[in-house]
Amino acid sequence: MEKPVEAIQSVRLDDDRDMLILLDQTLLPNEKKFLELKELKDIWDAIYLLKVRGAPAIGIAAAYGVYLGTKKSEADAYESLYADFKKAKEYLASSRPTAVNLFWALDRMDARFKKEEGKTAGEVKLALKEEAELIRAEDEKVCESIGQYALSLLEPGWGILTHCNAGTIATAKYGTALAPIYLGQEKGYDFKVFADETRPLLQGARLTAWELQEAGVDVTLICDNMASIVMKEGKVQAVLVGCDRVAANGDTANKIGTSGVAILAKHYGVPFYVCAPLSTVDLKCKTGEDIHIELRPSEEITTQWYEKPMGPKDVKTYNPAFDVTDHKLIAGIVTENGIAYAPFTESLPKMFK
């Protein structure tokens, strides 16, 4: 192994060269390539095309992106600089409509900009850079804290089922749902991980299985429709998933197929835990019904991963990127400030205190 996978920085700023450095997750596991992006359009494309993915990583990329976009502005006055900032912010916000971290990070950068009112353009730009770096550093601490709380729910030797990728490459470090696996590995917990492949984009196969294997974790890749049998055979003692948005009632939006895993877990009596940084908790969103679900291109189902088309020509497709897991199926929502249990309308607000 070249180096511990936790050490890979999937998103970082090269301020001297005015560029964002991203690990292109669409090329994994066959190629580890870092993109060097200078233009907002390229950063927008990277977010939309899932070259950078995972709610925290998207937020970090957006923060760096809006900083770089503003850094290029030639505006001298605060008001005109803010106009350029707002244009960059709104453009990046249009890339992915479901992941709340995208908007959270951009709004936080906006708040920092407004806090610097009265200062020179140069001072404002430095403040934006500082805020973006804080977002990255704080996410690393958040992930480690989530990992410690989630690890308290698990026992050595357990089988853990995952869906999609909520690992170190989706965050600043450690990941969310994979954080307790990495921390457990350091303590000799010897977890046995079953990674759902996660169709149609195969994040579980291409990303989770890759990074866990790179880190020396015992991981077994399974097709999505095999989750039921490994639970039935007693190979899984807990399910850990990440999250893109948490509603006030505890409904959670995550990669398509997550709700089906939760239903299976409920049937087999396996606890289903959602690992969610507080930046993904949206108390203004009452229930999962209020979460906008992004629809993706049909090519992701029919042609993108195949040498030849895997569906009839011009067949209709339905390709939602996410589904919503009902709060009644969730044993606990693990945040950096603790574990929220039902009723989530009462426990989630307490996490912010």
Rank of each mutant, 00 (worst) to 15 (best):
I263M: 14
S259H: 14
D244L: 09
E211H: 04
L201F: 12
T317L: 09
G216I: 07
E289D: 15
L264R: 00
G204D: 01
P312R: 12
Y318R: 11
A253E: 02
M310W: 13
K313Y: 13
T302C: 10
Q213C: 12
L240C: 03
C223I: 08
C285R: 04
V315A: 14
S279I: 02
V274S: 10
V217M: 03
R245D: 03
W305I: 03
D244T: 10
A321D: 10
V230P: 00
Q203P: 09
C243Y: 00
Y306K: 00
I301A: 10
E299V: 11
C223L: 13
P320C: 13
K235P: 05
E294G: 09
Q304M: 14
D282C: 10
G216A: 04
L221P: 05
H267C: 10
E289R: 15
E307M: 07
V236T: 10
Q304E: 12
G288Y: 02
T287Q: 09
D218R: 05
A238K: 04
P271W: 11
W210T: 04
G260K: 09
I222P: 07
D218F: 01
V217F: 01
N225M: 02
D224Y: 02
L278F: 11
T303R: 04
K255M: 11
E299I: 05
A262N: 11
N225D: 14
L264I: 06
M226A: 14
V239A: 08
E307K: 12
S259E: 13
K316D: 15
N225P: 02
A247V: 00
T302V: 11
G269D: 07
Q304G: 08
F322E: 00
K284T: 14
K286N: 13
Y306A: 11
L295V: 14
A253N: 05
P320F: 09
P277W: 07
T252I: 06
P277T: 05
E294R: 08
D244Y: 06
G260S: 02
H292I: 15
A205E: 04
L202A: 06
S298K: 15
T208Y: 01
T252L: 01
M226P: 01
E214D: 11
D244C: 12
A248W: 02
Q203Y: 03
G311Q: 14
P320V: 11
V281M: 11
P320R: 12
E307D: 15
A321F: 08
C223D: 10
M310Y: 13
W305V: 07
I256Q: 07
H292Y: 15
D224I: 06
P200L: 07
A253F: 02
R206A: 06
G269I: 05
P277M: 06
T280R: 03
Y306L: 05
V217P: 01
E307F: 01
G234L: 10
K266L: 13
E307G: 12
A265C: 00
L201W: 00
P312H: 09
F322S: 03
T220H: 11
V236A: 09
F272V: 04
L295A: 13
S279M: 06
T258Q: 04
T208K: 04
G311D: 14
C285N: 12
H267K: 15
E211W: 03
K266F: 14
A253D: 01
R245M: 01
G242I: 00
K232T: 08
N225H: 03
G288I: 09
